[in-house]
Design a protein around this nucleic acid. Structure first.
Lengths: 202, 202
DNA sequence: CGCAAATATGCGCACCCCGCAATATTTGGA
DNA sequence: TCCAAATATTGCGGGGTGCGCATATTTGCG
C-alpha cells in the first residue's frame, strides 16, 4: 500500500474518530462540519470528499465493522452455517487496535454517551441502519456461496443476512442500555443462537 | 374525532402522497419541499410542521403500515406466536382504501419507480429503516405481552420484533426487484415461515 | 357570540452538501 | 534525477433544508 492510500485511510479514520468523539461530547447538532474538519486537520471542503454527510462520518466505524463480518464469513472454513456466522461476528466486537489507539477515560460515561447519541438522533439511527443494509449485500453473498443459493433469485441468503444484522443490532442496543453492563459477547451469542433456533417462545 | 384532527390527518396524508408521487415521477432531489407543499395546498413552512424532513414524508405511509402491524398483533386472539405474527403482517400489504383512492395507471411502471426511488436514495433507505426501527418498540411490546417477557429486561421480544421487520423488509425488497412480479403475500409468508423455522439451509 | 387554544403562515438565518476550477502532492517512468 | 500524469486538497459560491420566532387564522367550548 503506497503512501497515498495510507494517508487517505488515516484521514478517513481521523475524521470519523473526531466526528464520534465530538458528537459524544457535545451532541450531534452542536458539532459543525467545520469542527470535525479542524479536529482532523483538513479543510471543511475535504470532509465532504470523504463522507457525504456528517452522519456517515459518525457511523463509518460501525460500517467498517459490518464489512469485516462479511469478509470473515467468507474466510471461515467449512462448518455449519450458524457456527460460521457466530465466529465471524464475535471477534469484530472485541478489543481492537483502533480502540486501543483512542483510550476512553470513563468507560461507563462513554457507553452512556454513545447510547444517547444513537437514541436521540434520527439522522444517526437511519445512517446506522443504512450501514447495516449496505453490508447486507456482502453478507448475503457470503451466505449464498456457503449454502449454494443465488442472491439474485433466492430469498434465503438475504433473509439470513438481514436476520444476522437484526440480531447484532438488537444485541448492541441492549448492551448500550444494560445497567450494570452485560458483556457484549454474551448478548451477541444469545441473539444469534436464538435466531438460529427459530425464536421459540422462552 | 373532531373536524380539527380530521383535517390534520388529511393534510398529513396529502403531503405524504404528494411527496411519494412527485418523487417517483421526477426523482427525490428533483423535488423541492415547495413543490410538495404546493401539491398539497399548504405553505412550505407548514410542511415542516408535519414532517421534519422530505424523506420522512415519503416514508410516512410505510411507517403507518408498520404501526398497524404492531396494533394488529396486539389484537390477535390467543394462538401460537408465529401464527399471530403472520396474520398481523399479511393484511397490511393487501389492497387498502388508501391505495384505492390513488389509482396508479401503469402498475409495473409504478413498481419500478418505487424500487428506483428506494434503491438510489441513501436518505430514503435510512428513513425507511428508521421507520421500521421506530415500530420495533411497539411490536416488541406486543410480543412481550404475548409471551410473558419484559422488553426492559429481556432480549427476546426485541429480537423477535427485529427479526419480523427484517423478514418484511427483505420480502418487500425482493418483491420490488422481482421480474416477473411474485405476489407479495407469498414472499412475506415464505420469509416469516423461514425465520420461524430457524433459517435452516435449504 | 366571543375567548382561549391550537394551527397555519411569513420571514429570516445558520448550516449542509456539492459542483467547479485552481492548486498542491504523490507516483511511476524516461 | 526530474518531469508529466494521476490524484488529493482547497476555496468559492449557490441552491436547499430545517427550524425558531412572531403573527394571523381557525377551531372548540362556555
Amino acid at each position: 500500500m503506497g503512501l497515498r492510500e495510507r494517508k487517505k485511510a488515516e484521514t478517513r479514520a481521523a475524521l470519523s474518530w473526531a466526528a464520534i468523539r465530538l458528537t459524544v461530547e457535545r451532541g450531534f447538532d452542536q458539532v459543525k462540519v467545520e469542527d470535525i474538519a479542524e479536529a482532523a486537520g483538513v479543510s471543511p471542503r475535504t470532509f465532504n470528499n470523504y463522507f457525504s454527510s456528517k452522519a456517515e462520518a459518525v457511523v463509518a466505524r460501525q460500517f467498517d465493522r459490518y464489512l469485516r463480518i462479511a469478509e470473515a464469513l467468507s474466510e471461515r472454513p467449512a462448518e455449519p452455517l450458524w457456527d460460521a456466522i457466530t465466529h465471524a461476528v464475535l471477534p469484530q466486537f472485541g478489543p481492537d487496535a483502533e480502540t486501543a489507539a483512542h483510550p476512553v477515560g470513563d468507560a461507563a460515561r462513554w457507553r452512556a454517551g454513545v447510547y444517547a447519541m444513537i437514541a436521540q438522533q434520527p439522522a444517526l439511527q437511519g445512517e446506522m441502519l443504512r450501514a447495516g443494509s449496505a453490508a447486507e449485500a456482502r453478507i448475503a453473498e457470503a451466505v449464498a456461496e456457503r449454502t449454494g443459493t443465488d442472491p439474485a433469485k433466492d430469498l434465503y441468503p438475504h433473509l439470513v443476512a438481514a436476520a444476522v444484522l437484526a440480531a447484532v443490532n438488537t444485541a448492541l442496543t441492549h448492551y448500550l442500555r444494560s445497567d450494570p453492563p452485560v458483556p457484549v459477547e454474551r448478548l451477541l451469542t444469545e441473539a444469534i443462537t436464538r435466531i438460529a433456533a427459530g425464536l421459540p417462545t422462552p
